[in-house]
Each structure stands twice: as structure tokens, then as C-alpha cells.
Design a binder for these strands. Structure first.
Length: 519
DNA sequence: GACTCAACTTAGGACGTAGTTT
DNA sequence: AAACTACGTCCTAAGTTGAGTC
């Protein structure tokens, strides 16, 4: 089997009466396609791992309020009623001894080995499940511990108490015929259900936003791997349709229908600038961030002329995770004219695309191509760009910096560019030197050069006020088969570009990809 | 069509660790 | 030995999407 997944069956030979091993590739089951929406036939797991209870403070650790010794009930920060009425002023709190205790504890933990921390035991017990015929790793098997909610950016709910989750809050999902996980002693689950149309094993409702949290499989699982593969297949299909789709939305820019015209401009942004779809958000529930469809008047400025370009749109808004998007983009005349039209008689605070939302947009997209949604453009554009750049780079080796600059001009988010650059750079690190003496010095030179390159890129990025989050697009947007094929062609070991976790996640791609793979 | 919600993907930051430099 | 750096892992927040309800 190409997939490298096998099941070993131990039988007894009828004639010799000796045990014999039988190797069966799981391809036999792999072919078994489930009917629509069914994600598994058998699911068994141990349930979630609960965080430890609060411990009372040891006798020699004290808390002082207003200079006075105060015996707190010593749940570290969940106060009793009495404490709450007494302790009102943070400035009068002296956490010194508690802080020192914590510092000592982390120091002690540092010196513990992994066995002492019992990590392995917990992972072994709770970290795996049995899904159909496979033992699979679970992504997050721990219930989130209570704490103070921070949120990102100016979050209206920052500082709220995230409550401790009890077994009574937890829904278990598993097979009817599996061993149902036992709740902690003296407790019971909220519900045990057997829904094989979903992939989660455990869920609960979180009290800050009231949203659901899930325990799901690790990215290296078959279920997630197949989903990932499907995602890139949709993006590849877009490749063959993108010319038509672009032609279509350029036509739509002339439409007399406001919805159609707004849709066309939004698509232009999503395609050209890799903007996210931009759902509406409930005001006061989350930080004020936007995506394409939720852009407001104050987020763009139109310039007839700017820096020698005509029809420039200046974007300035907070996107996902409150990451600032700032960009000055020359656009085609029709888009510019449409934007002026959309802005007529509007005030800051008004929506730029007042007739459009993500639902309308995605419905249109899926009518153009099955499976097409706004986010597919991010995957498609990132992957196709990586492939093109790798081709160019291969034709003209060693012009790393030139290429870096080239990539910087592409319509991708900064972190995508950075990832691609990093990947290409890594690919070109060749460590096969023969002379030992020279080796060290050369390595040092190489390090300096790399550092220089990196710093130069950092400098340009910083200049343009971009954030770099390495790894994200490598993990989420770039079709791994492009890189795997490249490695095969260039005879670069795969370890050069993917670490262990990434190799596990992309096992499907590493297994199936031939050198001639074309995105 | 507006609204709500479940289920899933995408994402940044904290932190630990190993290796390197000072 | 301390300080610094780069990288991987863990954690969970913050998005997207599609289905259901009214």
C-alpha cells in the first residue's frame, strides 16, 4: 500500500499450530465509502481529561490584605461571598508569598522529567481513541481549565471569569456498542449520544460567548487528512475555472443591480487581496474586526492619484485576531468607480457593501462551481503562487533576495509571503560540504547570510507594517503536494521543509505525491 | 431573507527546550 | 553560566460555512 497504514492480525496456523502474523493494508477499509454525512461506524474513547481542582494554600504561604494577614479560602482567585465584600481594592492585596510559591513550583517542574510529570501516562490513557479500525490521536483531550478570559484586542468581555467545566456540562459522543467512558466518581455526564454524522468526541458549552467547544481528532488522523486533501482538491478545481470566474465578476462590475455590483467588487478584493469573507458579528460580544463583506466606510480611503498610481484604494482595518490590515492597492477603473458609488451618501460606521453578506456571496460562488466558497480563494492563490515561485526559483537559482522581493509584491497576506519565502530558503540550504575544516567557517558564513536575508525581509515587512506569523500558511493554505513534489524533483529530503508534526499532518501528501504532481 | 446555531478550520501567543553566543 | 535565539508544542480564540427555523 502507498499509504503506509497496516493492520497486523495474529492467527494460529491450522497445520503447524504456530502463531503467524498477517499484514493487511488498511486500504481494504479505506475504500469503504460511507453514505452521505456519515463520518464513522465505530468510535470509542476515554472521555475528556479534567484539569486538577484548586489546592488550598500550604500553611506557610500567606495572603495579606491591607497589611493584615488574611486566611483566604484559598481557591486561588475564586473568592467566597465574605471575601468578596471584604477584598475590594487590588492595591491593598499582597500576593508576594503566593507569587514566590508559584515561581518555586515552576522552577521545580522545570527540573522534573517527563515521566515525573506523568505526561505520558495521561496521553496514553486519554490521548487516543479507536475510530473504525484505527487507533487515532486526539487533538485536544483536556477540558479547558477555568481562568480569566482575555480575548484578543479590545475585547468587550476581557477579564470575565471562564468557569470550571463539570462532567455534568459535558456531552459524550461515541458508538452505542463501544465502552462508554466513565464520568469521574460521583458525577454524571450531561448526555451520552451516538451521532456518527459528526467528528467530535466530547463537547461542552463555554460561558463567555455561549459557544460550543469540542474535543476532536489530531490533524494526522485519517478523518482530518482526507478533509485536508478535499480542501486542496477544491482549490485545484478552482484553478481550471478561475479564468471564467474572473471574467464573470469583471462583467458583473457593469451590472445595474446593486447586489451584483457589490458582489463583483467584493470578489475582486477576495481574489486579488486574499481578504476573508467577513461575517457580521454581534456588537458588544466580540472585538470590532472585519473581513471583506463587513468592511465599513471608515476602512477604505479612495485616492484618484497616489504615489504615481491612479485609482488607489487605501485599506486600514483590523482583521481576524485584531491583526491590522494596511495596504494601498491600485485597482481597475471600474472597481474604483463602483466603490465611489457605494460610498455615496454614507457615513463612517455604515457598511461599504450594504446589500451583500457572506451568505449571498457564497451562494453565488457555489453556483459557479460546486464546493466553491470565499475561503477557497486564499488556498488557491497561496498554493498556485508557491508552485509558480518554486518553478521560477528553480530556473534561476541563488537569486534569493530578488525572489523575496518578487513575492513581496504578490497579492497575499504578509504571513503567507513570509512562509513561502522561508520554505524556499530552507529548500536551498545545502549542507553537504566535504572538507571538515572549511565546514565550520562556511556554516558561520551561511548563518550570517541567512540572518542578513531574514533581517532584510523583516525590515521590509516592518516598513510595510506587516505582521509575520510563520507556519500558519504552511500549515493551512499551501498544498503540501507542491512541496513534496518539489523535494522529489530536487532530491531534497522532506525533513528539510517539514518538521515531525508537519510530516505527520501531511502524511497523506507525502505518501501519494509523485514528482510530476501539478497543482 | 433574517436570524441562530452547530461544526468545523484557521490563528496567534505563551511557554518549554535545545542549541548557540557572549 | 548566563543570555539569547529559534523552533516546536500546547492552548484556545476567532474565524467560515451550511443547515435549520420562522
Amino acid at each position: 500500500s502507498k499509504r503506509c497504514h497496516y493492520v497486523i492480525i495474529i492467527t494460529v496456523d491450522n497445520f503447524t499450530q504456530l502463531p503467524q502474523l498477517c499484514l493487511i493494508s488498511y486500504g481494504q477499509w479505506e475504500e469503504e465509502k460511507y453514505e452521505d454525512g456519515v463520518k464513522w461506524k465505530f468510535l470509542e474513547h476515554k472521555g475528556p481529561y479534567f484539569p486538577p481542582e484548586y489546592q488550598p494554600l500550604p500553611d506557610n504561604v500567606h495572603f495579606y490584605y491591607n497589611g493584615q494577614l488574611k486566611d483566604i479560602a484559598a481557591h486561588y482567585w475564586e473568592m467566597t461571598h465574605e471575601e468578596r465584600s471584604l477584598i475590594q481594592d487590588l492595591d491593598k492585596c499582597d500576593f508576594g508569598e503566593i507569587h514566590a510559591m508559584h515561581k518555586a513550583k515552576t522552577e521545580a517542574r522545570k527540573n522534573m522529567s517527563k515521566e515525573e510529570k506523568q505526561v505520558k501516562l495521561i496521553v496514553d490513557e486519554y490521548g487516543y481513541c479507536l475510530l473504525d479500525h484505527h487507533k487515532e490521536r486526539i487533538g485536544n483531550f483536556k477540558i479547558e481549565p477555568p481562568g480569566l478570559f482575555r480575548g484578543r484586542g479590545e475585547h468587550p468581555k476581557q477579564g470575565m471569569l471562564k468557569k470550571r467545566i463539570q462532567p455534568e456540562d459535558v456531552i459524550i459522543n461515541c458508538s452505542k456498542e463501544s465502552r462508554i467512558p466513565a464520568p469521574p466518581a460521583g458525577h454524571h455526564w450531561k448526555e451520552v449520544r451516538h451521532d456518527n454524522t459528526v467528528t467530535w468526541l466530547v463537547s461542552w458549552t463555554e460561558n463567555i460567548q455561549g459557544s460550543n467547544k469540542y474535543i476532536m481528532l489530531n490533524a494526522n488522523s485519517k478523518l482530518k487528512g482526507e478533509k485536508d486533501w478535499e480542501k486542496y482538491e477544491v482549490a485545484r478545481k478552482l484553478k481550471s475555472r478561475v479564468d471564467d470566474i474572473r471574467y464573470q465578476y469583471l462583467q458583473d462590475l457593469k451590472s445595474k443591480q446593486m447586489v451584483t455590483r457589490q458582489r463583483a467588487v467584493a470578489l475582486y478584493f477576495i481574489d486579488k487581496l486574499a481578504l476573508r469573507a467577513g461575517n457580521e458579528k454581534e456588537e458588544g460580544e466580540t472585538a470590532d474586526t472585519v473581513g471583506c463583506c463587513s468592511l465599513r466606510v471608515e476602512h477604505i480611503t479612495l485616492h484618484e492619484q497616489l504615489d504615481g498610481n491612479e485609482c488607489v484604494v487605501e485599506f486600514d482595518f483590523l482583521g481576524k485576531d485584531c491583526i491590522r490590515y494596511y495596504n494601498k492597492v491600485p485597482v481597475i477603473k471600474k472597481v474604483f468607480k463602483s466603490l465611489k458609488l457605494f460610498l455615496e451618501n454614507k457615513q463612517p460606521g455604515d457598511e461599504l457593501f450594504d446589500r451583500l453578506n457572506t451568505s449571498v456571496l457564497n451562494k453565488h460562488l457555489s453556483s459557479l462551481m460546486p464546493g466553491l466558497t470565499a475561503k477557497v480563494f486564499r488556498t488557491y492563490n497561496a498554493s498556485i503562487t508557491l508552485q509558480q515561485q518554486l518553478k521560477e526559483l528553480t530556473n534561476s537559482q541563488s537569486h534569493l533576495l530578488c525572489h523575496t522581493r518578487l513575492i513581496s509584491g504578490l497579492p497575499l497576506r504578509a504571513n503567507m509571503q513570509a512562509d513561502m519565502w522561508l520554505q524556499m530558503k530552507l529548500i536551498h540550504v545545502d549542507d553537504s560540504f566535504s572538507v571538515r575544516l572549511v565546514e565550520r567557517k562556511k556554516a558561520a558564513v551561511k548563518r550570517c547570510e541567512e540572518q542578513l536575508l531574514k533581517l532584510e525581509v523583516q525590515a521590509t515587512d516592518r516598513e510595510e507594517n506587516k505582521q509575520i506569523a510563520l507556519g500558519t500558511s504552511k500549515l493551512n493554505y499551501l498544498d503540501p503536494r507542491i512541496s513534496v513534489a518539489w523535494c522529489k524533483n530536487m532530491e531534497v529530503p522532506i525533513e528539510k521543509i517539514y518538521n515531525k508534526t508537519q510530516r505527520e499532518k501531511f502524511a497523506w501528501a507525502i505518501d501519494m505525491t509523485e514528482a510530476d504532481f501539478e497543482f
